[in-house]
Each structure stands twice: as structure tokens, then as C-alpha cells.
Amino acid sequence: MECISVRKKGLFTTIQDEGRLAYAADGVSRSGVMDGFAARYANILVGNPQHAAVLEMTLVGTDVDILTKSAIAITGANLSPALNGQPMDLWKVYLVQAGDRVTFGRRITGARAYMAIDGGFDVPLVMGSASTFTRGAYGGFEGRTLEKGDVLCKKRNMHPLEKLKGRRLRPQEIPVYDANRPIRFIRGPHFDQFEQASLEEFLTKSYTITNDSDRMGYRLTGPSLQHRQGPDIISDYVACGTIQVPGSEQPIIHMADCGTSGGYTKIGVIITVDLSEVAQRIPGEQIRFDMIDVDEANRIYREQNQQMTKVALNNRMI
């Protein structure tokens, strides 16, 4: 069923879901949403499975015309969304009619906004996922960012739309994108291959996100991270959130579209919960790192998933 038509393209808007989780051994990037927290909540609000396909908009929103009665929710970054010219609240469900228009204005907070629609966006699956990987030109809508004139379809929704109207997250459940909050990580396999003075600076000083940052990785600039015996290693596995340090002695955070292996030292790995926070940072903002152990990282992850499960149950359709 056709649901929206792109009236004005954004800076970088794609269809994303959870990503391709089973193909790393074959060299296939995971892709998927950058901020899993915001995307999952958008789906919960409109009654979808948590990992249904959504629109991911970066810095500049994509204006769309509504083609059929639907329920939508916008979460994540505040890109000043409006429905027929009236400001919209984030983290809230709106019922829209054919002929309505959703537009976006200036960025207020965050970097990436997510739009979910009841039923989820319907595109052909590639390796089991609807996610767009633009570097490979596959997945999503024709393997590319959305352009003016594109028409998207949605899957059939099993829930009465009227029951979705007005659903929203409680204020205490809505994340605050705080550029001053430290980003937590666990130590990587090559943590001890850096000079002690560099490690101390890494844990106490700030790094700035450079303009050369995207869905593949965030390049940072700050205190040099000096290796004891050089940056090169035998190539091995790289996961989303890996903090790699090449010969430039400046860290790179691998994000959703990263490769699956690499040959530079890995000083740490950002915990899953905080990757969503990193995804909402923009070039020019700073990142401070806070090291925690694996047990603490697992506890934080469990707590977040328990909270999301509770919200999903409280918003289940009967």
C-alpha cells in the first residue's frame, strides 16, 4: 500500500531496520539504524515489531506527502517536524490523512531522527534486511538515499489506527542528548599496546568529532594515542562501536556501515547502549570516554532492554 511521497529530500535519508546480523563472516556490513534506541521506540509507539523498517533522517529532515490514512511517530533528533504547518511533538503518535504533509525545519538537538509508520515501510529484503547500504547500492529503496518523487509503501497494519492515536513516551523515558555525558566503553584487545601517558589522556581528555564522519565511522581529533610498537596488527574482527587507532594516532569509532575486519589496534569498544548516544552527536561536538568492565556493560544493556520490554508491554495492542 502506497503511504508517502517524498516532496523534498533531506540531507541523507534512508530506510533502515535492525541490519544484517548474520553475514559479518562473509564480509557484509551490518548497516541498520544508527540509533537503535530511538528507532525501536518509534516502532513500539505505532504498534510495530521493534525492528521494523523506519526512515532515518540525518541533520536535515525529508518532507513527505501522506498518501493514505496512517499512524506515524517521530523520535530521535529534533529536526523541527510539523504536520500541515503545525509543530509536532517527538515521541508521540499522530494519525495522518491522505493529503496531509509532514515537513521539517531547523535542527535543534541530535543528529538523526526516525519516522515509523504503522505496519513498517515495505521494501524488498536483501539478505534478510530492509536496511540501505549506500556504498554497496543495495537494500532499502533502490540502494540509495531518498529523492524527490520517490513513493514508499507500507505493510498491512493489524491494529485499529484509532487505538494508536496520541500514544507517547513518558517524559522520564525520553532520552536527553547531552554532549557532555561521557561515552562508556570496555577495553579493547590492544589496550595495553599504548603508552601509559596516552592512555591517561584518552581517559581524561576530550576528543572532537571531525567533519570526516558518517555512517561508516566517526573520526576524532584530540590528544595523540602513541603506540608502544606501532599501529599495525594482523587483520581481525571489527564490530560496531570499535575504537580503532591507526598510524595517525587519532581514534576512529566504527559505526553501522563499518567493515567487518581491520588491521589497526583497537583500544576499546563502545557499549551498545551508548552507541545510540554517539549516533546523535554532530561534527564539532566533543566526546569524553569512560571505561567500564564487561559485567557493568552487560548490566546496563539488560536494564535498557528490560525498560523497553516494559514499555512495549504497556503499549501492546489487545
Results as ranks from 00 to 15, higher is better:
1 M>E: 08
3 C>G: 03
10 G>N: 08
13 T>W: 03
13 T>Q: 04
18 E>H: 08
19 G>R: 05
26 D>N: 12
28 V>Y: 06
30 R>Q: 14
30 R>G: 00
35 D>N: 04
36 G>W: 01
37 F>S: 01
47 G>P: 05
48 N>D: 12
52 A>R: 02
56 E>R: 07
65 D>A: 15
66 I>Q: 08
69 K>T: 14
72 I>H: 07
78 N>G: 02
81 P>T: 13
81 P>M: 13
85 G>A: 04
85 G>H: 08
90 L>C: 06
91 W>V: 02
93 V>F: 10
94 Y>A: 09
94 Y>M: 11
96 V>C: 15
98 A>Y: 06
99 G>C: 12
101 R>N: 13
101 R>W: 00
103 T>K: 00
107 R>H: 03
110 G>M: 02
110 G>K: 00
120 G>P: 01
121 F>Q: 03
124 P>M: 05
127 M>L: 15
127 M>I: 07
133 F>R: 00
136 G>N: 03
141 F>D: 00
143 G>D: 08
150 D>C: 09
151 V>A: 03
155 K>C: 11
161 L>M: 13
161 L>C: 10
163 K>E: 08
165 K>E: 15
165 K>T: 05
165 K>N: 15
167 R>N: 09
174 I>T: 13
176 V>D: 04
179 A>V: 13
179 A>C: 06
179 A>Q: 11
181 R>V: 12
189 P>A: 12
189 P>E: 09
192 D>T: 11
198 S>L: 09
199 L>C: 10
205 K>E: 14
208 T>D: 07
212 D>K: 15
224 S>C: 09
224 S>G: 01
225 L>T: 09
227 H>R: 12
232 D>E: 14
236 D>T: 11
239 A>C: 12
240 C>Y: 02
242 T>I: 05
249 E>C: 15
252 I>C: 10
255 M>P: 09
257 D>G: 10
258 C>F: 02
262 G>Q: 12
267 I>V: 15
267 I>G: 08
274 D>L: 06
289 F>L: 09
290 D>Q: 15
292 I>F: 06
296 E>M: 11
296 E>Y: 05
313 L>H: 13
